[in-house]
Design a protein around this nucleic acid. Structure first.
Length: 553
RNA sequence: UGGGUUAUAGUGUAAUGGUAGCACUACAGAUUUUGAUUCUGUCCGUCUAGGUUCGAAUCCUAGUAACCCAACCA
């Protein structure tokens, strides 16, 4: 019954660490910088880090890497916390790199005392020039040989605010000729007279990533510090600092970040989409952000399943968007309430049905009996989907056309007798006759039809705005395509239908419930919806074998 | 013309010297009061060239390709 699922390489490392007694328990962390909203790529990291904590009965911290005050804001902190919780994870501790500014400063002083760090007065340009290139070794700055006493003095003056931004930096004294650029006397501290979202104006020097991340891991006793591939070159420095400082030896492990077709994943690009108005905000339902996907109608379960299915490895990858859609539909199919709504309405009149009569029909709410049933009102005049009618039936057409029979879902089989057109030649009414003995639930006719279509009674329908979404980009990989990635934005990614009709049970729709509009897809109530104006987002369409059929014909 | 990392069906991921498997996609069929779901089946793969071995995706040698590294960003 229980298929043994093979371990990913990080799980193998952890199991080895646990069995050989290196650790009794593990502690991981999810370390976002609060400078933007979380996206599906972060979800992969969240599921990994928190998932490991759960699987191995360890713990996971949420730590904000807030060492660059000019980019970080409390708004982002709040959204990140909301997103992690919504995904279904609970952190052991909520921590901030800025909590450690005092300790970090002391560690830097310790490094100076050990003769392993120095204050450099060089300008950014000078430092870059002396750093060399990957193929040309770097050269020492004149300040490299400063005495420990002088370095201590200068560093404390940096902290005291004696110098302006950029005047001085603290650098590790490692190896200017290292083939690893990050070991060529990396910057550890820089001067920034900037207001920090948590520490306010208490500091004017801030640690760099390399002197904050590993040290924060070490301070917290993180056992497995998991990050993405681009940090591989930092690992040598990560290890060097921990060794020289003699602190808890956290270990860094790297995995490949998530890439997906038809979207972009970098914070820089996502920010551009927002600020330049290509989307309506970070939580625009077309965005790959957690907040956007949530608003679109994704469930946390579907995102977790997705992250589980894509796996963890060290090779570059490009995941098909269709896998995400599969995970989404898989979950929604189980949980969504079935309802009827007509997106592109066309009148259907049942000519032999009594005027003014209403029948309360029973329809299933979900895929199995547990979901129960509800009442839908049926009458002589209905809205049906315009695309469910053809003036002349095509090959393999199972829906309405003159002379054709279809079942109205949960109601009767009707035969199409004719139609009328308006003065512009557009079909405006379909005329049908119904077969009373075909009533859903006690059909005694023995007639079977190929097609079943959805409908709403005109007299009972409720108006709604419906927003349909398509992929945000027209090409698989806008990031690597030639020129500006924004050239490839799909201008049809949002289609607003202002005048859809939905069944009246949706008057009590909630934002937490997912719905399947029969045959039209999965929908959710948008946050902009109001009691007098329902607004639905289409989360994803249903799979559509018919449209494929049409393409083949 | 430095260093690092990675190469398994279209995509992703397993196989830890012993039958190349799983999922998505695509395709075909069955069921269906959603052209959905469900069910069944099909197609397609070890970067290349040598070598070691009874046996290689796995080990060795030499290539090739892709990605990352020269921010007072993380």
């Amino acid at each position: 019954m229980s298929e043994e699922k093979s371990l990913n390489f990080i799980e193998e490392i952890i199991e080895a660490d646990l069995t050989n007694g290196k650790y009794k328990t593990i502690l991981t962390r999810f370390p976002p910088e609060p400078n933007g909203y979380l996206h599906i790529g972060h979800a992969k990291s969240i599921c990994l880090n928190f998932g490991l904590g759960i699987k191995y009965k360890g713990k996971t911290n949420l730590r904000f890497d807030d060492t660059n005050p000019v980019k970080e804001e409390t708004e982002y902190v709040d959204s990140i916390k909301e997103d992690v919780q919504w995904l279904g994870f609970n952190w052991e501790k909520e921590l901030y790199a800025s909590d450690y500014f005092d300790q970090l400063y002391l560690l830097a002083v310790d490094l100076i005392k050990k003769g392993l760090a120095y204050v450099d007065d060089s300008s950014p340009e000078e430092i870059a020039a002396l750093k060399g290139t990957p193929t040309v070794p770097g050269m020492a700055s004149a300040n490299r040989s400063r005495s420990i006493e002088e370095n201590l003095q200068l560093f404390s003056e940096m902290k005291a605010g004696k110098y302006k931004d950029g005047e001085k930096v603290l650098r590790g004294k490692i190896d200017m000729e290292s083939p690893n650029m990050h070991m060529r006397d990396p910057l550890l501290y820089r001067i920034k007279h900037a207001h920090h979202h948590r520490t306010g104006d208490a500091w004017c020097i801030y640690p760099m990533y390399d002197f904050a991340h590993g040290q924060s891991d070490s301070i917290e006793n993180i056992t497995h510090s998991i990050c993405t591939l681009e940090f591989i070159p930092h690992r040598e420095l990560y290890d060097w600092l921990i060794e020289k400082l003699g602190t808890f030896s956290s270990q860094q492990y790297e995995f490949a970040r998530l890439n997906m077709t038809y979207t972009v994943m970098s914070k820089r690009k996502l920010l551009q989409l927002v600020t330049e108005g290509h989307v309506l905000g970070w939580d625009d339902p077309r965005m790959p952000t957690i907040s956007g996907m949530r608003r679109r109608g994704f469930t946390a379960e579907s995102i977790r399943n997705f992250c589980d299915k894509i796996g963890i490895a060290r090779r570059e990858n490009m995941i098909d968007f269709s896998l995400l859609e599969f995970c989404l539909r898989e979950d929604l199919n189980k949980s969504a309430l079935r309802v009827m709504g007509v997106l592109d309405p066309l009148i259907l009149i049942i000519t032999n049905y009594p005027d003014g009569q209403t029948e309360e029909l029973i329809s299933e709410n979900g895929p199995d009996e547990d979901y129960g049933t509800r009442i839908v009102s049926f009458s002589k005049t209905l809205w049906v989907e315009r695309e469910d009618f053809m003036e002349e039936a095509a090959k393999k057409w199972f829906r309405l056309a003159p002379g054709a029979t279809v079942r109205l879902k949960s109601a009767y089989i009707v035969k199409c007798d004719g139609f009328t057109k308006d003065c512009n030649g557009v079909v405006n009414e379909i005329h049908c006759s119904y077969l009373p003995e075909t009533k859903s639930g006690n059909d005694t006719s023995g007639i079977s039809v190929k097609g079943t279509i959805h409908w709403v009674s005109v007299a009972h329908a409720v108006p709604a705005e419906v927003r349909l979404y398509e992929r945000l980009f027209k090409v698989e990989n806008p990031g690597t395509e030639e020129g500006d990635f924004k050239k490839y934005i799909n201008e049809n990614s949002l289609k607003i239908i202002p005048n859809a009709w939905v069944e009246n049970s949706l008057l009590s729709a909630t934002t937490t419930t997912r719905y399947q509009f029969l045959r039209k897809g999965y929908f959710c109530l948008d946050k902009e919806s109001a009691p007098n104006k329902l607004v639905f987002n289409r989360t994803v369409t249903l799979k559509d074998a018919y449209s494929k059929e049409v393409k083949k014909l």
